[in-house]
Every structure is written in structure tokens, then in C-alpha cells.
Amino acid sequence: DYFTVDMEKGAKGFGFSIRGGREYKMDLYVLRLAEDGPAIRNGRMRVGDQIIEINGESTRDMTHARAIELIKSGGRRVRLLLKR
């Protein structure tokens, strides 16, 4: 199942961390959800969800650093296409 999650940044960021990336020879996944962060309050994202797109850009062969950069580059908002 594919689904989109739109979030607005909180005081401590978006409230999730990721693992994976090209340099680890793996796809990008949601690693952790911060307690009471925007990701957990949104209610749609879960640990283990695969991140397919960040702000419309495919994560295929994307490095971990580039993924972080893209998440931050959207300013106060981020849109993720996830797969569960």
C-alpha cells in the first residue's frame, strides 16, 4: 500500500528519523518516531514504512545525506510517499 503523508515541522523538527540510503546498499525507511512529534500526531506514519518519495523526488539510489537534505529543504513542510 502506498500513501502520502504531509507534515508541518514542530519545535524539534518533523519528529521522525530514517535509516538506509545508497551508501548502506538499502532503501530508505522510517527508523523512529519521536514521542509527541508531528509524525506521531499525524498518525499515519509507522516505524518500518519505506520512504518512496520526499517532496516529489524519488528516493531510488538516494544517499542518506541527500534524503535528510531534501526533508530539510522543504522548509516548514514535508510531503512523503510511503509504502507499507
Rank of each mutant, 00 (worst) to 15 (best):
G43M: 06
I68W: 15
I18F: 09
Q50T: 11
D1Q: 15
E69H: 07
F16R: 00
I51G: 00
R44C: 12
R44Y: 15
T59M: 04
H64M: 08
A39T: 05
M62E: 04
G13P: 02
D61Q: 06
F14R: 02
I71N: 00
A39G: 08
M45L: 13
N55F: 03
D61L: 08
I52G: 04
K83H: 15
F3Q: 05
R66V: 06
E69N: 11
A65Q: 10
R66A: 09
K12A: 12
E53P: 00
H64S: 14
L81G: 15
F14H: 05
H64K: 08
G48S: 05
L28H: 06
G75A: 09
L82D: 01
V5L: 09
G21R: 02
K25R: 08
R41W: 07
A11Y: 08
D49H: 03
Y2C: 07
S58Q: 07
E23G: 05
G56K: 06
R60H: 08
L33W: 02
D49E: 02
T63D: 05
R84L: 02
S58W: 05
Q50W: 07
F3L: 06
K83A: 15
G20N: 02
Y29Q: 11
K9Q: 09
G13H: 04
G74S: 14
E23A: 03
R32A: 15
R79W: 04
Y29W: 10
K83M: 11
N55E: 03
A39K: 04
R41H: 11
D36N: 12
E35G: 10
G48P: 01
R77F: 12
E69K: 05
L80T: 01
K72V: 12
M45Y: 00
I18N: 00
L33G: 03
S73E: 13
D27G: 12
E53I: 04
R44F: 06
I18P: 01
L28D: 00
S73A: 14
K25S: 10
G37I: 09
R66T: 08
A34Y: 15
D61G: 08
E8R: 07
Y29G: 06
G74D: 09
I51L: 10
G10E: 05
K25Q: 10
K25W: 08
S58H: 11
A11I: 15
E69Y: 07
E69G: 09
I18D: 00
Q50E: 14
D61R: 08
A34E: 14
I40T: 12
I40C: 09
G10N: 15
T63G: 06
T4I: 07
R41G: 12
R41P: 06
A67G: 06
Y29C: 11
D61I: 08
V5K: 01
F3E: 04
N42V: 08
R79T: 14
L31G: 13
E8A: 07
S17C: 13
N55I: 01
I51D: 00
G21H: 02
V78D: 01
A34V: 12
Q50F: 09
D1H: 04
I52F: 10
T4A: 04
M45I: 11
E69T: 13
E69R: 05
Y29H: 09
R22G: 10
E57G: 06
A34D: 14
L33Q: 03
H64L: 09
F14A: 06
R76E: 13
I68Y: 06
T63R: 07
R46W: 08
P38H: 07
F14V: 09
I71Q: 04
Y24R: 14
D6E: 15
N42P: 06
P38Q: 14
R32E: 15
I71L: 13
L82S: 01
R32L: 11
D61E: 12
G48L: 04
D49Q: 06
M62I: 11
A65Y: 10
G56M: 05
E53S: 10
R79G: 07
P38G: 08
G74A: 14
E35S: 09
R76N: 10
Q50I: 10
D6S: 13
Q50P: 03
Y2V: 03
V5G: 01
D1K: 15
M45V: 11
I54H: 01
A34W: 09
I18K: 00
I40Y: 14
R46A: 10
D6H: 05
V47M: 06
G74E: 08
R41C: 08
T4D: 02
L80Y: 01
Y2G: 03
V78Y: 01
R60M: 09
R66G: 08
K9L: 15
V30I: 11
L80S: 00
N42S: 10
I54K: 00
L81T: 14
E35Q: 08
R44T: 10
K72T: 10
S17T: 13
I40G: 14
G48D: 14
V47I: 10
L80M: 09
S17Y: 15
D27S: 10
R79M: 07
L82E: 00
R77W: 11
G56Q: 08
L70W: 05
S17W: 13
M26K: 12
R19W: 04
G20C: 05
G74Y: 05
R44Q: 15
R79P: 00
R41Y: 07
E23L: 02
D49R: 01
V5C: 15
G43I: 05
R84N: 15
K25G: 11
R32W: 09
R76G: 13
T63C: 08
G13Y: 02
K72D: 12
E57D: 13
L81V: 14
R22N: 11
E69C: 08
G20Q: 03
S73D: 13
I18A: 02
D6V: 11
G43D: 13
L31D: 14
Y2S: 11
E53Y: 06
K83R: 14
R76K: 14
D1F: 04
A34C: 15
M62H: 03
I40R: 12
E23M: 02
D27V: 04
D27Q: 13
A67R: 01
E8K: 14
D27I: 04
G21D: 02
R32V: 10
I68S: 13
E69I: 05
R22A: 08
L33D: 03
R22H: 03
V47Q: 08
A65E: 12
K12M: 09
R46E: 13
T4M: 04
N42G: 11
D27K: 08
R79I: 10
L31Y: 13
K83N: 12
F14Q: 02
G37A: 07
E53C: 09
K83Y: 09
S73K: 13
R66D: 07
R46C: 11
S58T: 10
G75W: 03
T59L: 02
T63Y: 15
E35N: 12
R76F: 12
G13I: 01
T59D: 01
K12S: 11
A34R: 13
T4C: 05
D49L: 02
E8Y: 03
M26V: 08
L81P: 00
G37L: 09
L31M: 14
Q50Y: 08
V47K: 14
I52A: 11
E69P: 01
T4V: 08
G56D: 07
R32M: 14
V5P: 00
Q50D: 04
V47W: 04
L70S: 12
I71M: 11
I71W: 01
R77K: 12
Y2P: 07
G20V: 01
S58V: 09
R76T: 14
Q50M: 11
M45K: 01
L80K: 00
K72C: 15
I40P: 07
A11W: 08
R60Y: 11
G48V: 01
G74V: 08
L80I: 08
G56R: 06
E53R: 08
T59R: 00
V47L: 07
E53H: 05
Q50N: 10
G48Q: 05
R32S: 14
L70Y: 07
I68E: 10
V5W: 04
S17M: 07
Y2D: 05
M45N: 01
D49A: 02
E8V: 07
D1N: 12
F14P: 11
I51K: 00
L31W: 12
S17F: 08
D27C: 06
K25C: 11
A67C: 09
R76D: 09
I71S: 02
A65P: 06
N55G: 04
R84Q: 14
S58E: 12
E23H: 03
G21K: 02
G13Q: 04
D36K: 12
G13T: 05
K9S: 08
Q50K: 13
R84P: 15
I51V: 11
L81W: 04
R66N: 11
F14W: 12
L33H: 03
G13K: 04
Y24D: 15
E35H: 09
G10Y: 05
T59A: 12
R77Q: 10
V47T: 09
R46N: 14
G20M: 02
F3H: 05
V78T: 10
R79L: 03
I71A: 03
L33A: 04
L33N: 03
I52W: 07
G43V: 05
R79A: 12
K9N: 05
P38E: 12
R19V: 05
R66C: 11
I40N: 15
G10L: 03
L81D: 05
E8S: 14
E8N: 06
